[in-house]
Design a protein around this nucleic acid. Sequence first.
DNA 1: TGAGGAATAT
DNA 2: TATATTCCTC
Length: 270
Amino acid sequence: MREDESNWFSKWEDELPLPEDLMPLSQTLITPDLAIAFNIQTPINPHTPSSHPQPNSGEFDSPELTTTGGDEPARTLKRPRLVWTPQLHKRFVDAVAHLGIKNAVPKTIMQLMSVDGLTRENVASHLQKYRLYLKRMQGLSSSGSGGDPATDHLFASSPVPAHFLHQGRPNSDQFLPYVPVAALQQQQQQMVAVGGHHGQLQPRYAQMGQFGSPRNGQFDHPFLNRQNPQGVVQRVGTPVTSSVPVSNYVDDVESANGRKVLTLFPTGDD
DNA sequence: TGAGGAATAT
DNA sequence: TATATTCCTC
């Protein structure tokens, strides 16, 4: 049911934080050390709202991030922990569902999710856990016993597509019209981090446009067929609240305007 | 060489 | 416990 989808999607939209609360994750991932080490000038977006200080104006002031601060070599720097919010997890599940459990591998999931700042490692780690969860669910569903361990709360927050539980050979090895992942991509949401506590990032999305249903109700794979070969270029760090026209973001996947704008990190030569 | 996945560390 | 990192395999 398509209506169903747009339904939860609408609800999902409502849960999105206000743009003002957001701040690009990718930006915060670049520590001062890293920036210095690679001579990166964290691009300051012209539309940047004044609500957030630019972290690279001299010194990072990011008490929220657990960076191996000080003068350690860049390679020892650790990224802040990613917090898998229900929204983010949902997106993850959507991507997995879209790909089919069988084709869902970290890199592809990551690409499908199209979340700014999200790494393959993030996804791999989560996927590992998710698989364990699915395994347990399979066990539970067949043994009839209930009870989700506390650890499953996150996973339970997003419905597990039924075919995940019996991956014998559902049609799930094809692409399911299960979730509007394609729509998500079109929307170019951005995951951003809002300050959490102690080195944690709360990834959120900022939604930039209105959602529609998947075109034709079908999911072709514009995205998968057009992964940016060279690593890309999206304007990260772009505050969602900026007056940048949405079209700037949504046109990457499909539309004619068409330049691709998927990227994980600011390139600086933007 | 890069990616996936399990094991292990934090 | 949740997530990151390491290690092994392909």
